[in-house]
Amino acid sequence: MTTPTPVVAGKLKSVLTDQLRNIAPVFTLLALVTFFSVAAPSFLTVDNFMNIMAQVSIIAIIAVGLTFVILTAEIDLSVAAIANAIGITVAYFTVQPDYVNIANLPMPGVIAIVLTVLAAFAFGLVTAFGVTWVGIPSFIMTLAMMQIANGVSALLVRGQIAYKFPDLVTTLGAGDLFGVRWTIIVAVLFLAVGYFVLKYTRYGRYVYMTGGNREAAEYSGVNVKFIIGSVMVICAVCTGIAGMLSVAYYGSAQQNQFDTYLLDAIAAVVVGGTSLFGGRGGIPNTIIGLLVLGVLNNGLDHVQIDSFLKILIRGLILLAALTINVYAQRLKENN
């Protein structure tokens, strides 16, 4: 090599090009933590850290499912609505106090939970059927599912609010274990399993390859319809479980309760650097994305910012993340 410097520089450039989507979110996180630590002394404490974890834990469970979906270059816009419908479903199968006027169908706790999980599974199957069999783009199909799930919620509670859930759900949603909220433990478990499946199993590889080049995956003998259908089901089940924990967390189940979950979950996945075009990213990215989102939401409260401005700031951060996401994809493809 007569000219080693350009070669090294070229290598460095190609690594940066390769890793932009992974590096940018970490820097964003570090910048936010630094900023809030300086701006608000109450921010950088153990208590507050556990607060942040608790705040993002339920979104994290949805984000695990959504990571699978986005890795295959599909999208699920029905997550908030399904979380809501499933939260309401589990209440529907539980004995409610007398003052709650819902024509519900009480069951023993375990059966209620099993039936509710099956309902989430069924939502996923319908989405999967529409996307793979009928061939409706997931963007539109899940928009329809959002409406359907909202309809189910409306029919089950009819404007009422339910307050009782199976004990197990209440414990996991609102309780703690040695001072650590159960939702955090469940979220960590979901993230760990999601990470393992995506990174170390054949199924996980198929998810990435289907997202990377669907046609090539199909011509390599991958059953891409099964992969896409199954990620929609995985997402619905994750979302359903998050919905159950969430109603317990808030202590009530009613309509239009979780509308912010949709944007939060998509933002977490995308801000973390998982490609909207599929095939790149994963659970570690989603974890960073969740932390960015959690730190941002929590930090903005500590610095006492105008709560209306807060919404705008979140939007701007999301836009910046989307820009980096698309830009990283272009760099990689032109490389």
């Binding site: 590889r205 080049n213 090539a216 011509y219 390599s220 493809e333």
Partner: peptide, 19 residues
């Protein structure tokens, strides 16, 4: 391009059919 994953390493391109 119908058969291969341009941005993936060679070994993943080969193994996809035999995983």
């Amino acid at each position: 391009s119908m058969m291969l994953f341009r941005t993936e390493p060679i070994y993943k391109n080969v193994s996809i059919a035999i995983l």
